[in-house]
Simulated assay, not measured.
Amino acid sequence: MSRFIPIGDSVNFRHLGGYEGAGGRRTREDALFRGGWFEIADDDDAARFAATGIRRIFDFRSTAEREKRPLGPRIRESVQIHELGISPGSMGPYLQSLRNLPAAEADCKSAMTRMHREMLEEGTPRFREFFARLVGDQGPFMIMCSTGKDRTGVVSALLLSALGVSKTTVLEDYLISADVYRDKELVFARNHGLDALGIDLTLVKDVFTVHPEYIGAVFKRIDEDAGSLERFIAETLGVGSEQRQLLQNAYLR
C-alpha cells in the first residue's frame, strides 16, 4: 500500500502505518491517516476516500482557516469532524508582517521554530481533547491542518510516541513533509498571494517546509515543562497506562 493517497490537489495525504511501536507491533496503515486540506473533486476521489474507511477527522485549523477553505459537503456528510482549532501553525499574520520588514531581518526558519515551541501553549488543551476522544475508539481517523505538516506533524508525533514508536522514527515521519514540499515551496508561496504583497518569495521558503529544529523545539519545550515526553503524555495529556494500552490495542497490529 502506497503511503500517499491522491485525492484532489492534496499532496500530503498519507497513512501512518508500518512503524514499529510497543511490543514490536506495527502501526496500522488502515486506521491512521494524516494530511492537509483536501477536497473530493470527482467520483474517483470519492472512491479513494471511501476506501480509507475514515470515520472521523480531527481538524486543527483555526476558525478563519476553516471558513476560508471549508471541507466540502461530500466529506462532511460521510465523517464526523472534530474542530480543534489551534492558531499557532497558521503563519498568515507573520507573513503579512514581512511586507514592512527589511530582507536582512527576515528569518523565517527561526520564526517557524519559535512558532512550534509556542504551539504547546494553545495546543496542549486541544491535544488533550484529541486523545480523550480517541481512547476507546478503534475506527480509522485522520489528523489534518492546512498543509498537513506543522500542527498535523506535532499531533502525529505525539500519537506515534504514545503508541511506542521511537523518537527517531517519529522524526523520520515528520520529515516526510519536507520531501513532499521540496521544490514546491515557491509555488505554495505564490498560491498564498505573497508575491502580490511584494514579498521576496525566496525569504519565505522555510515556512513551506519542515526542519528537524521545528519538531525539536516542541520536544525541548515538553522536556522543560513536564520533565520528559513520557510524563507529558501521561500527566499533561491524560494518557496514563490504561489509556495508552487501549490506544495500542486499537492502533497496533
Rank of each mutant, 00 (worst) to 15 (best):
S10A: 15
L16C: 13
G17N: 09
G18C: 11
E20T: 14
G24C: 07
R26K: 15
R28S: 08
D30V: 02
L32C: 04
F33S: 08
R34V: 10
F38H: 02
A41I: 09
D43M: 10
A46Q: 14
R48P: 00
A50Y: 01
R56I: 03
R69T: 09
P70K: 04
V79E: 00
Q80C: 04
H82I: 07
G85A: 03
P88S: 05
L95I: 09
S97T: 12
P102Q: 11
A104E: 15
A106W: 12
A106N: 12
D107Q: 05
S110K: 12
T124G: 04
F127R: 06
F127Y: 15
F130L: 12
F130D: 07
R133T: 08
D137Q: 15
F141P: 00
M144F: 02
R151W: 06
R151D: 02
S156M: 00
S161Y: 08
S161W: 02
Y174N: 10
A178S: 15
V180E: 11
Y181F: 15
A189H: 05
I199G: 01
V204R: 00
V207M: 09
F208I: 06
T209R: 00
H211S: 14
I222S: 04
I222H: 01
I222L: 06
T236K: 15
Q243T: 05
L247H: 01
L252F: 05
